[in-house]
Design a protein around this nucleic acid. Structure first.
Lengths: 145, 145
DNA sequence: TTTCATGCAAATGATTTGCAGTGTT
DNA sequence: AACACTGCAAATCATTTGCATGAAA
């Protein structure tokens, strides 16, 4: 349901912009949505190499999807990763156990960022908040270490 | 003053760990402290190449300094950057005009992160908050665009 | 058809590693 | 003297680009 929904939403966005609906792009969007968490460009390249989809196409498509706001880049680890996300401003809870990413919208955070910036005489243009930890499922799997 | 202090503090940490105090390491620490802001590994390589310090040494030393908690990696941009920082937990105000980085310690943020995580049943292990924008000086230089 | 997208392979750029020589302790 | 540290060059790894071919509108 949710998956199909996200998938359809993305297809619509592609159509709206007159961007060609190719087999490869469909496969990449589908794979990204199915993952429900973070993944690297290489993960995707490896996953789709079997279907004859080239490295360059994966990278080009991921860039395209980020530009369209369908995917977002994550930064907190040493390597770049991507995750499917909504277009409104939000933050991420990233599970280091299973790489699942949960989106959170937090007005309180927005307010706090403003306050911190103001106090420092800083004019904020954007901010990034990523919380790393264990999701509910992984907490049970691996009890408090 | 502040510069000299940071420099001395770092030298002490190096000594404590029995790590050899070489010309190259001193040069890299000094250069990092002088920058008072973010810089990439390549910036440093370029800056020190003239003094005959090799690429590998710069990378190895930056890694070492991160591991020691003297430097921290920044993530918010596409490329990795480093900045000198204290060892306690803190966040960063990064000026996109001049690359200056200001450290902030914000108990309110810590509390908020806890609250957000708790609400989501998430067990936080760490978090990252980076605020990008214009520092006071750059705001005057380039009026609100 | 016309134009855009793809795959391949080569090009880049960043970072790491192997190794023999060098400097520190 | 012993061993960690360094520079260099080669090796990796991630990402991008050039170009001829193939597919979508």
């Amino acid at each position: 349901m949710e998956l199909a929904g996200a998938d359809a939403r993305i297809q619509d966005q592609l159509n709206e912009r007159g961007i060609r609906n190719t087999v490869q792009r469909r496969a990449i969007v589908e794979a990204a949505v199915r993952r429900r968490g973070r993944f690297t460009a290489n993960d995707m390249v490896a996953q789709l190499a079997g279907r004859g989809i080239g490295r360059a196409t994966v990278f080009r498509t991921l860039d395209l999807l980020v530009e369209m706001g369908v995917l977002e880049r994550l930064h907190s680890d040493a390597h770049h990763a991507y995750t499917v996300c909504s277009t409104e401003h939000h933050h991420h809870l990233i599970c280091v156990g299973c790489d699942t990413v949960e989106e959170i919208v937090s007005p309180a955070t927005e307010g706090l960022v403003q306050a911190i910036a103001q106090e420092a005489g800083f004019q904020p243009r954007g901010h990034l908040l990523e919380i790393l930890g264990l999701c509910r499922a992984c907490q049970q799997r691996a009890p408090a270490s």
